[in-house]
Design a protein around this nucleic acid. Structure first.
Lengths: 200, 200, 200, 200
DNA sequence: CATGAATGAGGCTTCATTCAT
DNA sequence: GATGAATGAAGCCTCATTCAT
């Protein structure tokens, strides 16, 4: 039975996520994670080979969590594509705004992708994440074209890539500036974009 | 009399930028910076109080450099706003693509903004940078409205914020994925966006 | 009722001997021993109070094994003492050459005798081992004197001590240098020594 | 000028030798060495890459010291070879008896030669040491044959190897047993051996 | 001013040992 | 009795920073 082991693994990952989010990767000590998880320092090493491994596990946990939720939600949507885009937008932005403190993890992950020792894993993981998610949005846009909602001239891949980036970037700005209203900003922007998709 | 001192300060900052970009902040040792700058380890401390200070100086140097260039370029532009947007887009994207290796510095800065010890400075700096740059783009968009190029319904601030973010995010994707064509993607996207700006 | 327990004790000691010989004492983990013995880590502690105790048990096991065999063999020998010495020499050297990999245990034991925490036990044990074995060889030499084989001038104790040491030391050199022929070396040496014993 | 650096290197090695001899390798903490040398912990790492490196440096220092002294002394000797052998014997035994506390280093070195992480260096070094020193003694013995002092039947290499080992082994016994008189034992033994060398 | 040898705080990681099952 | 998950003490080593030259 791997049940208990997996459960504890996730328990540690969850605790670690909080500590990493709050302190940043470098400033986090394994002892902090252990304490947050309510376990002994050595116990972490029963589940993860190193601090870097633990950090990557946090990344995978968050990525999987987010990715799976989004993918499922998108597939179940119906109605005009423009409406669906607005839903997706609201869902993603709200989901992260609800837990904006965790967004610093994103920054840490990006940074990890630039540090030589972790670069390989993280860079590849991000690349793959984008390569998985872009087509999903692009497919949606193409659906809009097929339905006659959007102009045939639009480049679905390009818009998808930028839209994905816009979400990242607006949350980033929100994280920097608590007065920045990412949700309203994204809605206003999306309205303009959709107008463009229809009239390009 | 501050000339030589300032010159050397910049020399160190430049060297540090390269090392930080390549190794990441945490993995960079002051000794590495010193070697890259061709000076002694102790000398750095004649110009910077600490590693964090040096890092922040790199940030300011890069931000100032980028910001000033962009601001000046934008002010000198003439012609249709849509055309100007395309020019700005190409300029920014190309500028960074030319030195994409340095883009990891951006990731490091974001990450620094999440580490408790540097959070304050960096978070504020980023907030300010966005608050300075957003209005410049927004003003441009409003100029488009005034000229009758763009619809009056658009929210200039929101589009400006998202556009700024899109540039960050597309470069991020380019950094992760060398096969990703940030320039073409941004152009295609901008075409759609401009259509939206005109027809919203 | 102690049969099964003793059997398992020896099983663990045997397994431990192999692991200690291969890795050295410090680099050997109790988990390695457990795995080699095919039992759980905790089980070792049912039989030995600590790693040091286990190591000492390995020492005693090997010492007893070797010592008993040698003592018995020597007592049963007959014929000229010089011939008997040659037999003993061949037996001891060959016995160890057959399992030279285990000779590193000897080095580990010597080293243990120099580490403060184990010093007491091991130093004493070695002292006793030499004090037991030296007289056996010395008695043999005295037998040679009595029989008129050897000169009366020889110091039996001194020759015995050195002969014992020579065996240790030749095996040591063999362990260091696989090209070193300990058996032939010892035989040639012994020939000279016996000539000395007869003509001193 | 490497003078000061080399001087400090030797200072650390000397201090380390004492600590290693007293505590054994495993039980010695780098902090102990630093304290014994009157320097900071980190300073050791300016001169040695690791604890193992430091230990090996101690070994080399001692080996070189001993080897050079012995070699020089032997070359300068004159007179009958049997007399020279007695001188060498006394010199070596006395030299070590004078600093018998340091003999535990020998045990530690032998043990190091059996630990996987240091095995390579040490095993090779010992092999080389024996291969260097054996011929020197063997040459002496052959000189004895040439002079007509010793029988032509003796195997000089074998006797040399065993004699070397005998010294090691007698000192080992002396280290184990403070009541063991290594000097007298070696003298008595040598008398017998020389008789053998003459009459073999 | 410039230097780099010296420093020691700090953290990751290992592993003997315990103990609840 | 047997087990192995959990523990935390302990130590090697790194590296930012200092300061005597």
């Amino acid at each position: 039975m791997n049940g208990p082991r997996q459960k504890k693994t996730i328990h540690i990952v969850t605790a670690a996520a909080g500590v990493f989010a709050y302190n940043g990767y470098a400033a986090t000590r394994m002892a902090d994670v252990a304490q947050a998880a309510g376990i002994g320092k050595g116990t972490i090493y029963e589940y993860f080979r190193s601090k870097e491994d633990l950090f990557f596990a946090v990344f995978q946990w968050l990525a999987q969590d987010t990715g799976r939720q989004a993918t499922l939600a998108i597939r179940e949507m119906t109605g005009p594509v423009s409406r669906r885009l607005e839903q997706i937008n609201d869902t993603i932005i709200n989901k992260w705004l609800d837990q904006l403190n965790y967004y610093s993890l994103m920054l840490e992950f990006w940074s990890a992708a630039s540090a030589p020792s972790m670069r390989h894993r993280f860079k590849q993981a991000f690349r793959n994440a984008y390569r998985e998610f872009r087509p999903i949005i692009a497919a949606l846009l193409r659906d809009g074209i097929r339905r006659g909602e959007f102009s045939e001239k639009i480049d679905a891949e390009a818009v998808a890539a930028t839209l994905l980036g816009a979400w990242d970037a607006l949350l980033l700005q929100a994280w920097f500036d608590s007065e920045f209203d990412a949700l309203m900003t994204s809605r206003h922007f999306l309205k303009v974009l959709i107008a463009g998709l229809m009239n390009a």
